[in-house]
């Protein structure tokens, strides 16, 4: 399998995939958190106009796309912040205007072949030049560093904007920074994934991680792992199967989403089989008056001879002795607990 590393274009494509496999889900989780999953898609549309200007003026398409996407990101943030009934339409005008302008400008430029356009829209493993790679490396490092350093603030602002403002946090600046990070990620990804598909790599690994994770940190880590597998795996697959890289990466990400969803569904079924304790108004907690017993990673509370463990909004019956396979109460035990009613 290592023979693919003999090709310079594959080395470039794999390294680029490595970078975007990490960066796209990392930035994407905050966009998902702000319920702006599709903004990356719009930025990709607008970036095509920037690419076209680069081709037409024989300057670097990556640079012109970067400038256009960042300008669009700032415009989007201000349009959204101003709000009003027409802000949604204003964004639509911007996005369609961008892609239409891009297609027309690439069409009239001498180098604008249909193959060229397809590579920008859907990605290609042969498209990443060594010159691009250095630019991508530098930009991705900036994106990773800023996102990682600011992640507590990005999380706080997206979680509860009103509260963040009450705390004196510069919420507008945080949103603007996230928007610009998204724009840079879109441009960095355009060679391998393509401008029309990049948003998928920001969203799909996060959608999969959300199905199974229990914390933000866990979801973020898992999404980055899935993104990395999708991007690198997609590039390798596209080399052997001779398929377009962007589509291959996204299909692989979707396949991983299905696998994770099935695991999550199986987990939920297993959890639903837990024996529930009777409903009671009393809430168990430290110092609640019931004896607390450590049980693996949580506390059981001794309630009238039963061991109650908090699970979601209710309590599970846990077996008195913690054999691994006997963690949860047997049916008979649970039925007894239910029969007691809420009297205890």
């Amino acid at each position: 399998m290592l023979e693919i590393l003999d090709y310079a274009f594959m080395r470039n494509a794999l390294l680029a995939a490595l970078l975007i496999g990490v960066a796209a889900p990392l930035v994407g989780i905050f966009m998902v958190q702000r319920r702006l999953s599709l903004i990356g898609d719009g930025l990709g549309h607008v970036a095509l106009a920037g690419v076209a200007v680069g081709i037409l003026t024989s300057s670097s398409p990556v640079l012109t796309a970067l400038l256009t996407a960042v300008a669009a990101a700032v415009a989007i943030e201000f349009t959204r912040a101003r709000g009003g009934p027409t802000s949604d339409l204003a964004l639509a005008l911007m996005f369609y205007g961008g892609i239409a302008l891009g297609v027309v400008l690439i069409g009239i430029s001498p180098e604008g072949t249909p193959a060229n356009l397809t590579a920008y829209l859907f990605g290609s493993i042969t498209a990443t030049t060594t010159g691009d790679l250095y630019v991508f490396l530098a930009l991705t490092l900036v994106v990773l560093l800023v996102t990682w350093a600011l992640r507590p603030w990005l999380f706080a602002a997206a979680q509860d904007e009103e509260y963040a403002r009450a705390a004196g946090m510069p919420v507008t600046a945080v949103n603007l920074i996230l928007s610009i990070l998204t724009a840079v990620t879109v441009v960095v990804s355009m060679r391998v994934v393509g401008l029309l598909l990049i948003s998928a790599l920001m969203v799909i690994p996060n959608a999969a991680a959300q199905a199974i994770a229990r914390s933000f940190r866990g979801a973020m880590t898992l999404a980055v792992g899935l993104g990395l597998i999708s991007a690198v795996g997609g590039v390798i697959t596209s080399f052997y199967a001779e398929t377009p890289s962007g589509g291959t990466i996204v299909l692989l990400a979707l396949a991983l989403f299905v696998v994770v969803s099935v695991i999550a569904a199986w987990q939920r079924r297993r959890d639903a089989a837990h024996a529930r304790a009777e409903r009671h108004d009393h809430e168990h907690g430290p110092g609640c008056g019931h004896e607390a017993i450590r049980h693996k990673d949580h506390m059981d509370y001794l309630h009238d001879g039963h061991r109650h463990a908090a699970h979601g909004g209710h309590y599970d019956e846990h077996a008195p002795d913690g054999h691994a396979g006997d963690e949860h109460a047997t049916g008979a035990h649970a039925r007894r607990a239910h029969a007691r009613g809420a009297g205890s």
Partner: peptide
């Protein structure tokens, strides 16, 4: 809109300041 643990939400109380 995304998964978050209790401690992570409470932690935003400190970060925001």
């Amino acid at each position: 809109s995304v998964r978050a643990s209790v401690a992570e939400i409470v932690g935003t109380g400190r970060v925001a300041f």
